[in-house]
Design a protein around this nucleic acid. Structure first.
Length: 926
RNA sequence: GCGCAUGUGGUGAAAUUGGUAGACACGUCAGACUUAGGAUCUGAUGCCGCAAGGUGUGGGGGUUCGAGUCCCUCCAUGCGCACCA
């Protein structure tokens, strides 16, 4: 009987579907375990071999945990709102809902073929009204909440209003203008609402946004890369628009400290820390000196700077303001006015893109004004320059050229004298940002190590009342609206400039149907063109929609209770399932999705809707599977193609060819000739050794590079079990690697070999009920230990090797004993569910192997009674000796020292020590 | 520039706490059975060498009886951030 994987896999996939065996209940005596994949965006291209890598890993782990006696939640769904579907709609006129639906069907059928154990009854789609109803609802909670710094958590706005009524704004910091309780009570509704808007966690404000003309939309900061859009690489410029934001900056500290409580890779944590960009330092004031020539302009202006290095205060040789700084107007002297105007014009003409890409260029302009060093009264010039950013810190810096390279280059470029406060640490050639120098020329800080001086200087600044300790973050509030159609509509109505939330029972606010997907006149979203929808008795509807990350920021909660119509998820369900135990996905979401999900979870926690504040306990990032592209070389202006090894003799252009037409590196010429409507049917080939050899390069997997490999083809050719195991066998899950189909045969061979332990081609079934021998049990228990250890630490590639070793050894032992084989099948289930189910039933079991339990390890079979140990003298291997395993250290020493060879080597000297190393080796040190 | 990660055969890679480096698989070579095989099985396979032997985990240095593993330093590759004061 042959291993007919096609039949077997189809049979069991249907059986599992019919019996609903993967359904998970929310109550169980078993401990819970939550294994989650990052749900996909259902793109039109379907799956390629890179997608399932993480899904296979999570499926293995989910199945493994199930065998281990856990109640496992392992759901799947679709992040189905987003830009590509809308772009496609604009191009083809098809409604995004239609194409999205179609794409999801393709994805699901592809996923089903691989044999995943998802509980499809919990499937969610972010574009379903029954789902985004709750996205809108959570948005309203954000809208109706503020961050109370006294209690250090989000609270309903009512507590803030209460505070204003009783005490005005005196206890509340970070507010534009202060007011008393009486004033608050006298404000009209609009004034009150405008103030409250400054506190809402989801708020609307006019702001500069990343406007992309080509996409007709506003992009989030992390969607803009080097001044161009992540998708499409279109230029991005600043534009003022009314936008929605999430006040994520309020959570900066907790998002940072929360990282210490989760098990993410150091790389991801670093990326998030970097994104949050916390720095501690001082904000301090410099007085602007009165100008002696113009006695009338004696200034009382003060310039606030932010610095992390207050210890360098005596090395300040000039101040620099951002060109957009508001004091530029007031402090510029008459003499410099013309130059300053010229410089400002220049800065305005530069796009963000230029400013970012031409970083090295040094530009700036002197204002004519001077500031006074608050410690020694030294007069220092005030400049403006584009290297100082208005958006960070105070938009002004104190420049210390001997310690900061940018300040140094600036000083050199404009011939500003440099004060050296770090002695020999500064060489005059470049700045030295050290903290290990002893300070010189530094007044009261002279002779003090810079590291220690930071604190002293801070204290002094506070004491003199010229500044304060200040923490700064690089992170900005997150833009939360798009001038787009295919997203969640905001449950907001504008009335006289006031944002009115819909009531919870008015949700969902469904996305209305539109005919055209073009933007409104002023760049608003397509919804603005639907007059009858926009105009309501209470006011005008908000016409922008929520961004892609809205729905994905909380979907892991919805899986816990997906059909609930009363709430986003019942508290009992979220308490039971709690945090996601393992979350598997790519690094591309390191700062975007992961940060927003953490934010939403923290807000829902603060407001008391859920009982945990970090969504993901452990994060595993699967590496990207890159494409391995193949090239042919066309001789310029001819229809001749030259083989790789001979291409240097010709002037050639490189062309991608479909990897599926190439066997290794040899082109299948016959197939190539029929490719793309026989475009190359008449091509001539210049061969080497009778073959056409292709060039090879590793690139991102993409259709346009013809290097995608469709999993369907591999599943069809080798079966899902082979495919699953091969993807795992490829290498460590977290490592990126190019796809290479070559080795798949080896894994397929392994499964056939396993099959032959059960069935003989001639004799048929050959398993027996005989008792297993110790040697056979040893193989089994060694494998149990290996699979358990490797699976627990996500080392799936070595697990697969472990199975191969086991099957090789059992074949050598001619072991066909049920006792051993049945246990082996259970171990194998997570990796190759179909074949193990088939053989498990063949052995006579009635129940599905999925509900079996993981074989118990009996460690006595792991240990041999005696073992041959290598013995080394002074680290050099000399001989071996057989020692019983329960021998004590003393006994071992006696046996070793009485050994003939050892005695000869030691030659009567007394050994200094005998090291008995972890049951592996004996070393004698003479 | 800063941060993080990774460097092991022809290839993908093992080696969990420092203990016989290269498990397992691909590829290659040889052989068996076959009319045939892109089926199956057996054996060999880090490198140099006929061999004995030598050598070997990116380079250099160090700790240790013993280093792929720990420390220092340099180099290379990948990813992330990038005028953040």
């Amino acid at each position: 009987m042959e291993y007919n994987y096609r039949e077997i896999e189809k049979k069991w996939q249907n059986a599992w579907k019919d019996s609903g065996i993967y359904r998970v209940e929310n109550n169980s005596d078993k401990p819970k375990y939550y294994v989650l994949d990052m749900f996909p965006y259902p793109s039109g291209a379907g799956l390629h071999v890179g997608h399932p890598l993480g899904y296979i890993a999570s499926d293995i782990f989910a199945r493994y945990k199930r065998l281990k006696g856990f109640n496992v939640l392992h759901p799947m769904g679709f992040d189905s709102f987003g830009l590509p579907a809308e772009q496609y709609a604009i191009e083809t006129g098809q409604h995004p809902a239609t194409t999205t639906e179609k794409n999801i069907d393709t994805f699901k059928s592809q996923l089903d073929k691989i044999g995943f154990s998802y509980d499809w009854s919990r499937e969610i789609r972010t574009s379903d009204a029954s789902y985004y109803r709750w996205t809108q609802w959570i948005f309203l909670q954000l809208f109706k909440s503020w961050y109370n710094h006294q209690t250090d958590k989000a609270e309903p706005l009512s507590t803030l209003i209460e505070e204003f009524k009783n005490n005005g704004s005196s206890n509340v910091k970070d507010i534009d203008s202060h007011f008393s309780a009486e004033e608050w009570n006298q404000f009209d509704n609009k004034q009150q609402q405008d103030i409250l808007m400054q506190f809402r966690l989801a708020f609307s404000s006019y702001g500069e946004v990343n406007w992309c003309e080509a996409l007709g939309t506003v992009l989030a900061n992390d969607e803009v890369i080097n001044g161009v859009s992540e998708r499409g690489g279109h230029p991005v410029e600043k534009k003022k628009m009314r936008q929605w934001y999430l006040r994520i900056t309020e959570y900066a500290d907790r998002l940072l400290s929360g990282l210490d409580t989760v098990n993410f890779s150091e790389a991801i944590k670093e990326m998030q820390r970097n994104w949050i960009g916390k720095s501690e330092g001082a904000e301090m004031q410099f007085e602007v000196a009165g100008d002696e020539q113009e006695a009338s302009s004696v200034s009382t202006e003060k310039i606030k700077v932010y610095t992390t290095r207050p210890d360098t205060i005596f090395g300040v040789d000039f101040l620099v303001l951002a060109p957009e700084h508001e004091l530029v107007k007031t402090i510029t002297t008459k003499d410099q006015q013309a130059s300053i105007n010229e410089y400002l014009t220049y800065v305005k003409s530069r796009s963000d893109r230029e400013r970012q890409s031409e970083v090295k260029q040094i530009t700036g302009c002197f204002t004519g004004a001077y500031a006074l060093n608050p410690f020694d009264g030294r007069k220092i010039p005030i400049w403006i320059a584009e290297y100082v950013l208005i958006g960070y810190g105070t938009g002004a810096i104190m420049a210390v050229p001997c310690g900061d390279q940018r300040d140094f280059l600036f000083a050199k470029h404009f011939n500003i004298p440099i004060t050296n406060i770090i002695g020999s640490h500064y060489n005059g050639e470049e700045a030295n940002p050290t903290k290990d120098a002893i300070l010189e020329n530094s007044g009261f800080l002279n002779g003090i190590l810079m590291k220690d001086a930071i604190g002293l200087a801070l204290d002094k600044i506070v004491e003199k009342g010229i500044g304060r300790r200040k923490v700064n973050y690089r992170m900005r509030d997150a833009g939360f609206s798009r001038q787009r159609y295919w997203g969640e509509p905001f449950p907001i109505i504008w009335s006289d400039g006031i944002a009115l939330p819909l009531d919870a029972d008015e949700l969902p606010l469904e996305l209305p149907h539109v005919e055209k997907y073009g933007p409104g006149k002023e760049g608003e979203g397509p919804l603005s063109n639907l007059k009858e929808w926009v105009i309501t008795p209470n006011g005008m509807r908000e016409t922008s929609t929520m961004p892609g990350y809205a729905g994905s920021s909380w979907y892991f909660l919805r899986y816990m209770d997906p059909q609930n119509t009363e709430t986003f998820a019942d508290r009992k369900a979220t308490d039971y399932w709690n945090q996601v135990d393992v979350y598997i996905g790519g690094t591309e979401h390191a700062v975007g999705h992961l940060l927003y999900s953490r934010l939403w979870t923290k807000v829902l926690f603060d407001l008391g809707y859920i009982g945990f504040e970090e969504p993901f306990k452990k994060l595993v990032n699967q590496g990207m599977i890159q494409g391995s592209s193949r090239f042919v070389y066309r001789v310029k202006d001819t229809n001749k193609l030259v083989s790789y090894g001979l291409k240097s003799d010709y002037d050639v252009t490189e062309l991608h060819v479909d990897v599926n037409m190439v066997d290794g590196i040899e082109l299948n010429i016959a197939e190539f000739k029929t490719w793309r409507n026989s475009e190359y049917a008449d091509a001539e080939f210049i061969l080497e050794n009778g073959k056409y050899i292709c060039g090879v390069e590793t690139e991102k997997m993409s259709k346009s590079k013809f290097n995608t490999v469709n999993p369907d083809i591999l599943v069809d050719k080798y079966g899902a079990d082979t495919f699953r195991m091969y993807e795992m066998f490829l290498g460590p899950i977290e490592q990126s690697k190019p796809w290479d189909t070559k080795g798949i045969e080896g894994v397929h061979r392994f499964l056939k070999k396993l099959w032959r332990l059960f069935y003989d081609d001639v004799k048929g079934a050959i398993w027996t009920d005989e008792k297993a021998t110790p040697a056979e049990l040893k193989v089994l228990h060694k494998t149990i230990k290996k699979i358990e250890d490797d699976t627990e630490r996500f080392s799936f590639n070595t697990s697969v090797s472990g199975f191969m070793v086991a099957v090789n050894e059992l074949s050598d032992l001619k072991c066909h004993k049920r006792e051993v084989l049945e246990a082996l099948l259970i171990l194998l289930t997570p990796y190759a569910p179909h074949i193990s189910e088939e053989l498990y039933h063949a052995l006579g079991n009635k129940d599905s192997i999925i509900s079996a339990s993981f074989p118990k390890l009996e460690s006595k079979y792991l240990i041999e009674a005696e073992k041959e140990y290598p013995i080394s003298i002074n680290g050099k291997m000399r001989t071996t000796i057989t020692i019983s395993l329960d021998a004590t250290q003393d006994e071992i020493e006696n046996i070793v020292l009485s050994h003939e060879t050892i005695q000869k080597w030691v030659e009567g000297k007394t050994p200094k020590k005998i090291i008995y190393v972890k049951g592996k080796m004996v070393n004698v040190v003479v």
